[in-house]
């Protein structure tokens, strides 16, 4: 028997307008359970600028400001400064897609990290510009199909490693999470809440319509991403202390890839390449994380 330790408090209402099977809707529900109502959300152009609901509706029970693409970390810094002037406390949370975090808002995020702004920056990463209809972002994985990286010439470049980039900024806390591990996700939000400075939470957010998989597989695909080793669950404190939260079962990477239409054109060579990247990432992680010294990395089994 498994006992879940998830708060019953609901700060997100049903009736939001996410696509069926959207991981970012579920992620918000978990996040707000951990963060509670003393939270202010900042949302740029992304799926969540639609999901929350059109004027005058909102599906969350906390204040939410929709702001221009590329400005969230700065806008949130302004909220934090104002709260300080008013002597008020609240979690200031940016909730954005990979377009904001990896691309257009990257500079702003870097600036806020350098200034040690006391905000929680959450990227629900669906690996592309899904709200505009599945275009490539710098978070799109290598060889993936999108509408701007057609199957004849799929994405040629590696995905940016967001957590490592911000670990290099020496932020106090950076972590990855998925909806397949809700307790882990909630724990990470609860932790982020207690730490001062910029916290980054990178959520892999499977997107049924963009990744081309049936909408009942979101949690399964999230789990496969972790169990194949493609998306490690880990935390980094001050760019130094690495903690891996889950050792993968080292399932074959094909189990993850073949469930998604965006990878349907991949050859055995492409899968081999994926395995090599996973292995490289884990070797790096093992080197950085003392607790991992003895674990075998079994990507090529």
């Amino acid at each position: 028997m498994k006992i879940f330790n998830i708060p019953e408090e609901e700060n997100m209402n049903p009736g939001h307008v996410a696509c069926p099977g959207c991981a970012s809707a579920l992620s918000m529900r978990f996040a707000l359970k951990a963060l509670g109502r003393e939270t202010i959300l900042v949302v740029p152009a992304c799926c969540w600028s639609v999901i929350d609901g059109p004027f005058p509706y909102s599906s969350v029970k906390v204040p939410l400001f929709h702001i221009a693409f590329g400005t969230t970390a700065a806008f949130a810094s302004g909220i934090r400064a104002a709260l300080k002037m008013k002597n008020k406390k609240a979690n200031v949370v940016v909730w954005c897609g990979d377009g904001e975090a990896f691309d257009i808002g990257f500079q702003t995020l870097s600036g806020a990290a350098e200034r040690k702004e006391d905000i929680i920056f959450v990227c629900y990463d669906n690996e592309g510009y899904m709200n505009t209809g599945i275009q490539r972002s710098s978070a799109t994985p290598i060889r993936a199909w999108t509408t701007t990286t057609p199957k004849k010439y799929p994405k040629q470049e590696l995905k940016k490693d967001l957590v490592e980039i911000f670990a290099a900024h020496k932020i106090p806390y950076a972590a990855t999470a998925t909806v397949a591990f809700p307790e882990d996700m909630i724990r990470k939000f609860s932790r982020a809440k207690e730490i001062r400075g910029l916290k980054l939470i990178h959520i892999l957010s499977p997107c049924p319509s963009g990744w081309k998989f049936p909408e009942n597989l979101t949690v399964k695909i999230s789990r496969l991403a972790v169990e194949t080793g493609i998306f490690p669950l880990y935390e980094v404190e001050y760019g130094e202390k690495y903690t891996v939260n889950h050792i993968p079962k080292w399932l074959p990477v094909e189990e993850y890839l073949k469930k998604q239409g965006r990878f349907s054109h991949l050859t055995e060579k492409d899968c081999q390449e994926k395995r090599a990247y996973i292995e490289k990432k884990w070797l790096e992680l093992r080197e950085k994380s003392k607790s991992l010294e003895k674990i075998p990395i079994l990507v090529n089994n």
Partner: peptide
């Protein structure tokens, strides 16, 4: 953007 965030917070 910082000023806007501050102004939006009152």
């Amino acid at each position: 953007a910082v000023c806007m965030g501050a102004s939006a917070t009152g």
